[in-house]
Computed example of a mutant assay.
Amino acid sequence: MTVLRSPLVRFIVIRLAYTVAVLLGVMVAVFFLIQIVPGDPVRIALGTRYTPESYDALRSASGMDQPLMSQLASYVGNAFTGDLGVSFRNSEPVTTMLFDRLPATITLALAAIVVALVIAVPLGFTAALREGRWADNVIRVISQFGISVPDFWMGILLIGLFSTALGWLPSAGFESFAESPVGWLQHLVLPAITVGLVTGAIMTRYVRSSVLEVVNAPYITTAESKGLNRKRIMLDHVGRNALVPVLTISGIQFAALLGGVIVVEVVFAWPGLGLLVYDSVAARDYPVLQGAILLIAVIFLLVNLVVDILYAAIDPRIRLS
């Protein structure tokens, strides 16, 4: 077991165990939360198609006629094999529905992170390097405004300006990149900017704090006292060291966006996981709702795991903590 003596390997093993434990906890919590929601999902799903025979058949097919703990054991066991059941609405496998919608949500989250970084990095550096001056104060006020504004309201404002008033961009919908790259980009711009503006406001504060911490570090003072070029100090010392925690925050924000763009996807009719969750709640399609929450949790945990491992590989102090 020589491999396990490595601090980095031990760190990875511990994080993997933590990830699996959290995932099991999420699965159990989601299962029981769904159980306490008022109403009979099978009866609601059948609607006007209800008959005693169809009701009993759907309950049996979904396993809801079994004891509660048996349902839980089956749910956990099937989930680890990729079987998340079938939709009450259209009898389609939940796994298929989720992975059909996942690319759209990942595309929107990636585009939003790019927008956020384009906003946060220059503004955060500018605010930190001009601490206490008017530029710093203005940027902090703008970032506070961005944090306070609901993303759906921001989306409505952008639709009103760029779609209704100017007619430059479509207000909603989606086009496949394979069918029309230009149409795909036009439909992506507004939702990506909407999410990116809010996320960028949050990340601007992280960038500012990170840069301030590095700028005030003793080794920066030493570099300046040796007469090193200020541009070189900013690039070689401040930039590299300040952006390490920013990359960590970017990964966490990306994972959070995958489960946090529900309202934006509804506003822009973007066919991702968020819109699927919204429709599932409205239709009481609990298998799809359970599956979507579980998938978002898995992605969030995996992104956090990768970020932790990369951070530990870069900074030895993390793996030894």
Results as ranks from 00 to 15, higher is better:
Tyr50Phe: 15
Thr51Asp: 09
Thr51Met: 10
Pro52Glu: 10
Glu53Ile: 10
Glu53Gly: 05
Ser54Gln: 12
Tyr55Trp: 06
Tyr55Met: 09
Arg59Gly: 04
Arg59Cys: 00
Arg59Tyr: 08
Ala61Glu: 12
Ser62His: 06
Gly63Cys: 02
Pro67Thr: 00
Leu68Arg: 04
Ser70Lys: 06
Gln71Asn: 08
Ala73Ile: 11
Ser74Leu: 14
Ser74Ile: 09
Tyr75Lys: 09
Gly77Pro: 14
Ala79Met: 02
Phe80Asn: 08
Phe80Val: 12
Gly82Gln: 12
Asp83Ser: 13
Asp83Gly: 09
Leu84Lys: 00
Leu84Cys: 08
Leu84Ala: 06
Gly85Ser: 11
Val86Leu: 10
Val86Trp: 07
Ser87Leu: 07
Ser87Ala: 07
Phe88Ala: 05
Phe88Asp: 05
Phe88Ser: 07
Arg89Val: 12
Arg89Gln: 13
Arg89Glu: 11
Asn90Ile: 03
Asn90His: 00
Ser91Trp: 00
Glu92His: 04
Glu92Lys: 06
Glu92Leu: 09
Thr96Lys: 10
Met97Gln: 14
Met97Asp: 02
Phe99His: 05
Phe99Arg: 04
Phe99Trp: 13
Asp100Ile: 00
Arg101Pro: 11
Arg101Trp: 08
Pro103Lys: 04
Pro103Phe: 07
Thr105Ile: 09
Thr105Lys: 15
Ile106Ser: 05
Leu108Tyr: 00
Leu110Asn: 01
Leu110Tyr: 03
Ala116Met: 15
Leu117Phe: 08
Val118Glu: 05
Val118Phe: 05
Ile119Gly: 14
Ala120Ser: 15
Pro122Tyr: 12
Pro122Gly: 10
Phe125Thr: 13
Ala127Asn: 11
Ala127Ser: 15
Leu129Asp: 07
Leu129Thr: 12
Arg130Met: 11
Glu131Trp: 08
Arg133Ser: 09
Trp134Asn: 05
Asp136Glu: 03
Asp136Gly: 07
Asn137Cys: 07
Asn137Ala: 10
Val138His: 04
Val141Phe: 15
Val141Cys: 09
Ile142Ala: 15
Gln144Arg: 10
Gly146Ala: 14
Ile147Asp: 10
Ile147Pro: 10
Ser148Trp: 04
Ser148His: 04
Val149Lys: 12
Val149Trp: 14
Val149Cys: 14
Pro150Trp: 03
Pro150Thr: 10
Asp151Glu: 15
Trp153Ala: 06
Met154Leu: 15
Gly155Ala: 09
Gly155Phe: 01
Ile159Gln: 04
Ile159Phe: 02
Gly160Arg: 04
Gly160Tyr: 00
Gly160Ser: 04
Gly160Glu: 01
Phe162Ser: 01
Phe162Trp: 03
Ser163Asp: 06
Leu166Lys: 01
Trp168His: 03
Trp168Met: 03
Leu169Gly: 02
Pro170Trp: 11
Ser171His: 02
Ala172Ser: 14
Gly173Ala: 06
Phe174Asn: 08
Phe174Lys: 05
Phe174Val: 03
Phe174Gln: 03
Glu175Gln: 11
Ala178Ile: 04
Glu179Ser: 15
